[in-house]
């Protein structure tokens, strides 16, 4: 179902960061965190690779720029909302991220897309060469700890995708 975004470079020694983003008490908004944890558990052997670093952050906001520092490739796993079916997996590279900011002319929507745009504008040399976003379509953002069943079912596929990306890049 997925095609990999073009441009990932084959540099085995470069640092790859896998960053799970979300809120653990807002229903499906925890999907990015849950998916990275799922990947860690299922593919534990690979997380020992010295060039792989994992970050799990709730609401990092602008702090995402600090998390990206020092990495050549960043794989962000986050929840998205696009009126697709919950559990749908979107795979985007950073040149496609601008599409995410539609309607976010607000100064305060410090979501991933706005933060990356600010980083590109102010500190292009500190940004990773490649940023890949795995977006998991959410269905339920109500307060609470559990994911909706469709999102839960998507986690193995997201984990497989993370694993493929870490090997491929």
């Amino acid at each position: 179902m997925n095609q990999f975004p073009n441009g990932a470079k084959d540099e085995p020694s470069s640092i790859i960061k896998i960053i799970g983003i979300g809120q653990s008490l807002r229903g499906d908004d925890a999907a990015g965190l849950a998916a990275v944890r799922f990947w860690q558990e299922r593919y534990q052997a690979n997380i020992e690779r010295p060039n792989l670093q994992v970050e799990l952050e709730e609401l990092p906001g602008i702090g995402l720029l600090s998390l990206l520092e020092g990495s050549s490739i960043a794989i962000l796993v986050d929840t998205v909302h696009s009126n697709s079916i919950p559990g749908t997996i979107h795979l985007l590279s950073n040149d496609q991220l601008e599409a995410f900011t539609g309607g976010a002319s607000s100064a305060h929507g410090w979501g991933v897309a706005e933060t990356l745009l600010l980083g590109e504008k102010l500190m292009p040399l500190s940004m990773p060469e490649k940023i890949i976003l795995i977006g998991i379509e959410a269905g339920n953002f109500s307060l609470g700890e559990s994911l909706s069943p469709q999102v839960e079912l998507a986690l193995p596929e997201v984990a497989r995708l993370i694993e493929q990306l870490t090997i491929r890049v």
């Binding site: 095609q3 909302h81 599409a99 309607g103 959410a138």
Partner: peptide, 15 residues
């Protein structure tokens, strides 16, 4: 991807 997708906003809908 073989077609454009439009995602009006990333999560962080809280607020």
């Amino acid at each position: 991807m073989n077609q454009d997708i439009h995602i009006p906003a990333l999560a962080r809908v809280e607020g």
